[in-house]
Amino acid sequence: MSQNMRPPTLKITPEEYKDLSTKLTPKPTVVKNCIWAFFVGGLICAIGQVIINLFVAGGLNPTQASTAATALLIFLGALLTGLGIYDEIGKYAGAGSVVPVTGFANSIVSPALEFKREGYVMGVGARLFTIAGPVLVYGIATSIVVGIIYYFLH
């Protein structure tokens, strides 16, 4: 805040304003959000479990079944994003639709879809990784560090 403003000036300091603003700004409805997140997140995982069970019944071993289920869920998350349904679920479910791997698919498709008009290379191609990029960077980097530490410990 500049000291040489012509009067009149507001009779409130930035600190007082921060308190006032905190008081007047509505807080997130944490309990309601958590209940939604619990049920939707739980439901997506339960669907994932049914898919795994199906693949196991179809003859895959548990690890393969889990991998295949992940791929199928990614497909479903991407499809629901394309159909404009996933963001409607996300409005209520919050983290319940962000944290499962379907949310990862949503975070890949939504920017790519939106930037299609900027072309297939700098639009779709580049934007697929707007959020997936950081996830892969931190995920893979952590796994490499874990692997190296594991090598020296064993």
Partner: peptide, 17 residues
């Protein structure tokens, strides 16, 4: 799966809120 998945998502929601 429902219970564990739900709880993990609640942790995410708390992180956001």
């Amino acid at each position: 799966a429902f219970l564990v998945g739900g709880v993990i998502c609640v942790i995410g929601q708390l992180l956001m809120d």
